[in-house]
Design a protein around this nucleic acid. Structure first.
Lengths: 192, 192
DNA sequence: CTCTGTGAACATCTTCACAGCT
DNA sequence: AGCTGTGAAGATGTTCACAGAG
């Protein structure tokens, strides 16, 4: 969140920012901001605040955004298609190098130069493409078994859009984007 | 999360479930499950566990999922299109009754019976359609001003897919689905 | 005997408040 | 004087452990 705010600030030509101002932009308070940042080091200058450019670059390093990641898109449906052309994806260094789907009607088609491959060949596709991250946009029922095979093939990071819990090996990481749970939360907030 | 697990359990014919089992399925521990549920009431039977069907229906009521919500989709781009045809949306009682976009080339087109209207007419569209919830899939720059007008027009709930912070009146609720932040988190986890 | 519901203990997260650098 | 960095206090969240219901 701080990283994104700092990108904005830099675009607007701001050079220095106080914890109080960062807090206002982020919807927290100044003590929270200072504690958060101080966990990683002492980036501010007493009496002045934080250098926007320096802090942004520091956070970029911490977040690992100064390298790029090879992504395999698992599921070539409507959501997969929307994500494929989602420009923030590339902007953050995530590049889709392979697409998998079980549907024979989709296999062989090409999206912007990337050919859709049969999911059954996933081990080979992961090996050849060097994918380290998988974006899961399959139906819930298919998600866990897909993840099992991909993890075994060497994929270490999973961004899961299926509304279900995924189990992965210790060495791998899952992050969930669960639209269903957000809808339920919204429903609760609105009627409660 | 419990609600979704219980739906699954019921589909599989399970009638009773213990907090320990629910915890295993949800990735927590049994004390957590019991505390969570006991916040809303005493739903279990000592010595037996929780009735799957009863607990599911109780949670449905708590979450407010036994009514339906009228939704206005704000932004008729690729992601908007994918969400429009996302079936979980309807399954949770969220029905898209209106679509808004600023692009004159899109205005007037129809998606499955719902006509895309000019964003500039949003007050009128909200009034006519009775929309209570807005799904924001505009670019970040446009999101806040769109939300301001929609909130004033009577929209109380916002599901925000734009990677930015939204400010709304006290009486309204925002939930964020921030793909950008998940990507950054994944990047951090992978390189850290 | 099994499994819930819940105070009490423990752990983590947030805010306060101020010493100390610029 | 202004603002960070950080111990200490306060608030919130999680786990333990057990009384008591079925």
């Amino acid at each position: 969140m701080y990283f994104r705010i700092l990108e904005d600030l830099e675009r607007n030509g701001r050079q220095v920012i106080s914890s109080a101002m960062l807090a206002k932009l982020g919807g927290t308070n100044s003590a929270q901001v200072r504690k958060d940042l101080s966990y990683f080091g002492n980036f501010g200058k007493r009496g002045r605040g934080y250098s926007v450019a320096d802090l942004k670059e520091t956070l970029r390093g911490i977040l690992g955004l100064n390298r790029s990641w090879r992504v395999v898109l698992v599921g070539a449906g409507q959501l997969g298609s929307a994500l494929f052309s989602y420009k923030d994806f590339n902007k953050h260094g995530f590049h889709v190098v392979a697409i998998l789907d079980v549907d024979p009607a989709k296999v062989g088609k090409t999206w912007d130069g990337v050919t859709i491959r049969a999911f059954d060949k996933c081990e080979q596709v992961v090996r050849e493409s060097g994918a380290e991250v998988a974006v899961i946009v399959t139906p819930s029922e298919a998600a866990q078994s897909a993840v099992d095979r991909l993890a075994k093939a060497g994929v270490r990071g999973f961004l899961n859009f299926a509304p279900c819990k995924l189990t992965v090996p210790e060495s791998a990481t899952v992050r969930n984007v669960n639209i269903t749970i957000e809808l339920e939360g919204l429903s609760y907030a609105l009627q409660g």
